[in-house]
Nucleic acid binder design. Structure first.
Length: 271
DNA sequence: ACGAAGCCCTGCAAGC
DNA sequence: TGCTTGCAGGGCTTCG
């Protein structure tokens, strides 16, 4: 389940292997993802040289000069570099064959991901144009969250997971950031104090930055490996620990559902 | 404008 | 052991 740190780790991992490289051809084995992959993607990018590998939220942006390939990994997707002859396995849907003999391989068992072709400025694309700020920039802080949340009755956890508020805060890190900040996930966003939002914004940045840092140490796995950054083993305080004792105060962690997402919190530590 | 619910898909776990 | 059922999950879309 790629969250923003995994997407950024993926971006860093593939960048040195595709930047300035020419795409020779594209093999589409499965076009039915979240949205259909353009059938003529191969024609559009063949013989094009990759100009940059960017990211906006959880969308990867591969600029080929005449347009941009926009890739989302959904929750089970991965992108990795494989030697050209590596046989495709069951869920390996797309290969971008590179001039150097390697291929950039897209795998996505659950097909929640997507691949778009964008001409013109990718930031004008409907899926990107109304996204909230990047969490690791100065634009995102406690004051921003406070201002955006006034009169909002939605649960604060749902609020910070809304990509129109801020991008890249998935379920796992939302749970963890709220725990660290001492805020109950179900609390109405409009009733969270400015001070608590300062803390929350700080913790979101901290957690995402930590995860990206750890992900960076496993970059070698991107070549030929399974493409799974190993940082996931990091100890989580609440996510996946419903019914278990809180690591801080030992009381039993509660698990509820908010917006159809599992939410775990400590009723002692979080108010 | 906001919020709640629905939907897409597959692997895995639990139940029989 | 093998089959069936249920569920998780990102995020867009639809409906109220």
């Amino acid at each position: 389940m790629p969250e923003l740190p995994e997407v950024e780790t993926t971006r860093c991992g593939i960048e040195p292997h595709v930047l300035e490289k020419k795409i020779r051809s594209v093999e589409l084995r499965e076009r039915q993802l979240r949205w259909p992959v353009p059938a003529n993607l191969g024609d559009l990018v063949s013989d094009r040289k990759v100009q940059s590998v960017g990211r906006r939220g959880k969308y990867l942006l591969i600029d080929t000069g005449n347009g941009t390939v926009m890739i989302h990994l959904g929750m089970s997707g991965s992108l990795r570099i494989v030697p050209g002859k590596t046989p495709a396995e069951k869920h390996d849907h797309v290969d971008f064959r590179l001039q150097d003999g390697n291929a950039l391989r897209y795998r996505d068992p659950r097909k929640f991901g997507s691949i778009h072709w964008i001409e013109g400025d990718p930031m004008d694309h409907p899926l990107l144009v109304s996204l909230g700020p990047e969490p690791l920039t100065g634009e995102f802080d406690g004051d921003y969250l406070f201002r955006q949340s006034r009169k909002r009755k939605a649960a604060v956890k749902t609020f910070i997971m809304d990509s129109h508020v801020v991008v890249g805060v998935g379920n796992i890190y939302a749970n963890e950031a709220l725990f660290r900040s001492g805020i109950r996930p179900a609390r109405a966003a409009g009733r969270v104090t400015r001070q608590k939002f300062e803390l929350l914004a700080f913790n979101i940045k901290q957690i995402l930055a930590e995860a990206i840092k750890v992900g960076g140490t496993t970059l070698r796995d991107f070549i030929g490996g399974d493409g799974e950054p190993g940082y996931f083993k990091q100890s989580l305080n609440v996510y996946g620990r419903g019914g278990l004792p809180c690591r801080e105060c030992k009381s039993i962690l509660k698990e509820i559902r908010l917006g159809q997402r599992s939410s775990v919190y400590c009723s002692q530590c979080q108010k």
